[in-house]
Nucleic acid binder design. Structure first.
Lengths: 272, 272
DNA sequence: GCAAAAGTGTTAACTGTACACCCATGT
DNA sequence: ACATGGGTGTACAGTTAACACTTTTGC
């Protein structure tokens, strides 16, 4: 969904075909960590019960990667984000037969409404939007505390951080897209250093471990985790402690920018 | 490139837009192993100096994965192939400025010729083929001894197994696509069992090791390799030896179908 | 007999894992 | 004082990596 300034109907009618790469979209699974749970940024259109991933079409003269960056930028205000494509969803019927409880009709009315509200065009004169679409999935890792969520059309689309088990109904195959993205970052965890993108600048070892636990979906040994992750060398210890909480004040750590980048390049190789 | 029966020009002119998903193609990196080197199936059009990957457009009512299977089928005659998507190449200028030595013009003439020979249409009346294309890369692993290479238009397109260092000029970004596919199978090697697809039914341990060495691009210790790969349990030893060669006759091994599949499912976890 | 490749075994170094123990802090 | 989480260390098991020795075969 791209926020073009409102114009007259005929104008817009031409636009879609002229400005967007046909039959193709990009959807982003934007992960954030609230200190306890792994969350995903989701969109809802009031009046409809489904939630969908933030996505967009791609401009004809825009690199596909840049379209994903644009979505991130539009929704979170962030630049320089960790962003990777992970899978193309290309089944011919991926927009049909979802939900299984009459959602085909819902889909139809939603599209109509989106076209009217967001693009100011009537869907019955816009076959472009109704044609088959394939979508490329990207995942992004962001620091949830840095994000200012944005709606593209005030009072129309809702943007929220959601734990994936909070969501009752997913738009089309977006449940599958999220599942696949989770599998991807889980397997990346043993190859790439992850964490810098999802945590604030200073963090405790427990916070980092809980992030890993949230991604992997299981508990890790506190002491072995610390030894292993410090052995990679891209995390430094600060002479500060987190005060205020109950119990012993834990040390704060930080990511060494340079060494973290190097580790991203050459990869690590661990089993968790 | 899809082999439609020849028809008149006006017929074809309508066809492209009507039958294919617009602006999207699929390219396959088909790996084979000749016992010594890792090879890739490449296409050449006589009269042009570049080599390209076998690829195709996708039918409007065809799953993208099925398009990749179709290419494999068309070119090698094989079904039930190990086939995975690995990356979408979506830069807006990926079909321009390749080679760097005036290949833009070559590209133009080639397209024209392809359109004439393969599709029987004139390119100047076919803007569809000249518009921006993004392509999804698939890699496939096949048993080179089982493959009967096929040209789609006899005497027009050449199909050959090529070591990647044999190829002087690649079409568009196909060098990059191959590089990325190689990186992908290299990293897969520590997660997935690979080999069954690339080797004949019976093979020696040295042949299997040389395959791994070819993929990784470095030597592996003969004895440690054997111990490690046998420990996964999906390879069995036969009571047969390969006779005829010089030196001591080596034992033959085979892949246990069932256990191999299981290992594909749950994954292995090794460092090579 | 010799060179080259195959088969088998041994050892030291390293890593993963499961703990035990003590420390600091707020209630 | 005590419950709870944090910091540090150790010990065993299992795996990896390096390498020695013997066997078989063709020339």
């Amino acid at each position: 969904m791209i926020n073009l300034p409102a114009a007259n109907i005929n104008d817009k009618l031409l636009k879609s075909e002229d400005v967007f790469h046909p039959g193709f979209s990009v959807d982003c699974v934007i992960f954030g960590f609230d200190g306890d749970q792994l969350k995903v940024l989701m969109i809802n259109y009031p009046g409809f019960d489904f939630w969908k991933l933030p996505g967009s079409f791609v401009f004809k003269n825009e690199n596909v990667d840049d379209a994903a960056l644009r979505i991130l930028q539009e929704r979170t205000g962030l630049k320089n984000i960790f962003l990777r494509q992970f899978h193309l969803f290309g089944n011919k019927d991926r927009l049909d037969n979802w939900g299984g409880w009459g959602h085909n009709e819902v889909h139809g009315t939603w599209r109509k409404k989106v076209l009217e509200k967001l693009y100011n065009i009537r869907s019955d004169i816009q076959p472009w939007f109704d044609s088959r679409f394939i979508t490329l999935g990207y995942y992004a890792l962001v620091d949830i505390t840095q994000v200012k969520l944005k709606t593209l059309t005030p009072d129309y689309d809702l943007v929220e951080w959601k734990a994936i088990n909070e969501i009752p109904v997913f738009y089309a195959d977006h449940q599958e897209i999220i599942n696949k993205s989770l599998e991807t970052i889980q397997s990346q965890l043993s190859v790439l250093p992850i964490g810098k993108e999802l945590l604030p600048e200073k963090f405790t070892m427990t916070e980092l471990r809980m992030l890993y636990e949230a991604i992997l979906g299981r508990k890790l040994d506190r002491r072995n985790f610390q030894r292993k992750i410090l052995s990679f060398g891209y995390i430094g210890k600060l002479n500060e402690k987190r005060k205020g909480g109950a119990h012993k004040a834990p040390s704060l750590f930080y990511f060494n920018e340079k060494k973290y980048q190097e580790a991203q390049m050459r990869g690590i190789g661990v089993s968790w």
